[in-house]
Design a protein around this nucleic acid. Structure first.
Length: 290
DNA sequence: GTTACGACCTGCGAGC
DNA sequence: TGCTCGCAGGTCGTAA
């Protein structure tokens, strides 16, 4: 889980270290890392070699290196992806998948991914409204709450029209992007909502409250360099963030709720885990979870 | 059109 | 000690 704050930390690091530099060589060490580049690894290498990085952009958990030819290197970290900026002679990581060097002979860019859910692909940039350009594979992703053009009313109307559980809704990247399992649990805890609350029962103020808490928790996490449970979540220099210390729900099974003291519980949710306080976030009336 | 769910993938820890 | 199994979970394709 790299979610929005962790991806933004990486984007800022890449913007600092890679923007303005020209790619000298590209090495692909695991073909799965470029599986979304339909034309194949050789085409990926030939398209990227010699190109200059003009900027680094992001929407939700997707980020992309804007190239000087109206294309972009779309990057998703998946569950365990890292983009590191390493000294050219640094020792290679065990799970190094893609390596780029630059013509200035400075630090190289390493895409490292243990579980290979992440990857890179080169796509054409497409002009959308507000003069923004997005890669095609990102067009369906909703704006994230840190986007200046994010429209809260679109989210509130959208979630109330859905017919699903509230946690499924806020994990839906077509409705709101950037939220993953960790920040979904934190936002629900702050809003005192059970994860299975039907979206059609959400009153407008509650939906607004949920959005506010989701935005707050991700903004706070970003200020601390993101959340880190282990060495998988790091910035481009390989350093971890500190927000895990401030989590109130995620990963706190059998620990006292910091609000009421009840023991937090972990429950199965959509092939993953969900953490909640049984007192602050009671099961909605009339809902069966069997 | 919308929602739910399985598959993908690897490292780690628990249990035997 | 070594093996098996469950778990972690973001996205996509498919089924309902």
């Amino acid at each position: 889980m790299p979610e929005l704050p962790e991806v933004e930390v990486v984007r800022r690091g890449l913007d600092k270290w890679v923007t303005g530099r020209t790619v000298e060589s590209v090495e692909i060490l695991h073909s799965r890392a470029t599986r979304n580049h339909i034309a194949g690894p050789k085409d990926f290498i030939s398209r990227l070699t010699g190109r200059t990085v003009a900027a680094v952009s992001r929407r939700g958990k997707f980020m992309w290196l804007v190239l000087d030819d109206d294309h972009a290197v779309v990057t998703h970290l998946g569950m365990s992806g890292q983009v590191l900026v390493q000294e050219a002679d640094a020792e290679r990581e065990k799970h190094l998948r893609i390596r780029c060097t630059f013509t200035d002979g400075g630090r190289a860019m390493h895409f490292v991914d243990q579980r290979t859910f992440g990857g890179m692909a080169i796509e054409e940039l497409i002009e959308i409204d507000a003069g923004q350009r997005l890669p095609e594979s990102v067009l369906h992703i909703a704006r994230d709450p840190l986007d200046p053009l994010f429209d809260p009313s679109t989210f509130v109307d959208g979630i109330r029209k859905k017919r699903t559980q509230v946690k499924r809704a806020i994990l839906d990247q077509n409705l709101i992007s950037g939220v993953g399992n960790i920040y979904a649990d934190e936002a629900l805890w702050r809003t005192k909502l059970h994860w299975a609350t039907p979206t059609e029962r959400l009153k407008r103020p509650v939906a607004q409250d949920l959005l506010g808490h989701a935005t707050d928790v991700m903004t706070e996490a970003l200020a601390q360099g993101g959340t880190s449970f282990d060495s998988l979540y790091v910035n481009v220099n390989g350093e971890s963030g500190y927000f895990s210390r401030d989590l109130n729900a995620y990963g706190r099974e059998n620990e006292p709720c910091v609000r009421c003291g009840s023991l937090m519980v972990r429950e199965a949710f959509a092939n993953r885990s969900s953490f909640r306080c049984p007192r602050c976030q009671p099961k909605p009336r009339g809902i069966s979870l069997d």
